[in-house]
Amino acid sequence: MTERNKSADSAEKRAAGIAASRAVEPGMVVGLGTGSTVAYAIRELGRRVREEGLEILGVVTSYQSEMLAIEAGIPLTTLAQHPELDIAIDGADQIDSNLYAIKGGGAAHTREKIVSISAKRFLVVADESKTSLQLDKAVPVEVLPFAKELVTKKIRNLGGKPELRLALRKDGPVITDNGNFILDSSFCVINDPESLALKLSTIPGVIEHGIFSNVDELYIGKKDGSVEIVKK
């Protein structure tokens, strides 16, 4: 990707993140997702806290979003203290025309799913490159290390091609915030996300998979700086 394309990509992400952050109102408890696009939403919410006196509480989905939220000045809480959230904002690796999404590129999809389902409204922010008519990206599956071989076999039986995600700057596999492994599992075009999601969920040793069916609104950042909002 050229510097010009990177700049355009960042502008799309920034537009989507800032637009979604405007849905947050005073007094809300907000789920804060993980990734480069939702980072813009977190920074904008931090600006509103500092400059506008916006009173909110955030619930983070990863160490990354926790550090970013603290840096932005957003007061944090937990699901134990606030089990029902007003809104959650997160990104996606891919999202189709029916608002089924694949998440987990940052290996945080288990906590992201818990937070998003705990919210009354779940907003996804994305640039146009993340949208597709049908899902066809690999599905991240978080698994107990003890169950890796069993889960690998079961995913292959479903027609998938699982690959253990390896770390870039250390030897061995990626370890999630929950202490587990990630199997990136390709199924080519996913014609029935609901059915595949259910089958993956029934495999012993699977902690959570990256198919999300609970998106309420999608904010798509465009190259011209505009944002398209798609609602379920």
Results as ranks from 00 to 15, higher is better:
S10D: 15
A11S: 13
A11T: 11
E12S: 12
E12V: 01
K13A: 09
K13D: 04
K13R: 08
R14T: 02
R14S: 14
R14Q: 14
A15T: 00
A16R: 01
A16Y: 05
A16C: 05
A19C: 01
A19W: 02
A20H: 04
S21V: 08
S21L: 05
R22A: 13
R22E: 12
R22V: 06
A23I: 03
V24A: 05
V24C: 07
E25G: 00
E25V: 02
P26F: 05
P26R: 05
P26Q: 10
G27C: 06
M28F: 12
V29R: 06
V30L: 10
V30M: 08
G33Y: 08
T34A: 09
T34W: 09
S36Q: 08
T37Q: 07
A39L: 04
A39G: 04
Y40K: 09
A41T: 00
A41I: 02
E44Q: 11
E44H: 15
E44P: 10
G46P: 09
G46I: 11
G46T: 12
R47T: 06
R47I: 03
R48M: 08
R48K: 15
R48T: 02
R48A: 07
R48I: 01
V49Q: 08
R50I: 03
E52K: 14
E52G: 10
E52S: 08
E52H: 10
G53F: 07
G53D: 15
G53Q: 14
L54V: 12
L54I: 15
L54C: 13
E55Q: 15
E55M: 13
E55L: 11
E55Y: 01
I56H: 08
L57I: 11
G58M: 07
V59Q: 05
V59R: 11
V60Q: 03
V60K: 10
V60E: 07
T61F: 13
T61D: 14
S62N: 12
Y63H: 10
Y63I: 13
Y63Q: 14
Q64G: 07
Q64K: 10
E66H: 11
L68S: 02
L68R: 01
L68K: 02
A69T: 07
A69R: 11
I70Q: 11
I70P: 00
I70W: 00
I70L: 12
E71W: 00
A72C: 05
G73E: 01
I74A: 11
I74D: 06
I74G: 12
L76K: 06
L76A: 09
L76T: 09
T77P: 00
T78M: 05
Q81W: 10
Q81A: 14
H82Y: 14
H82L: 00
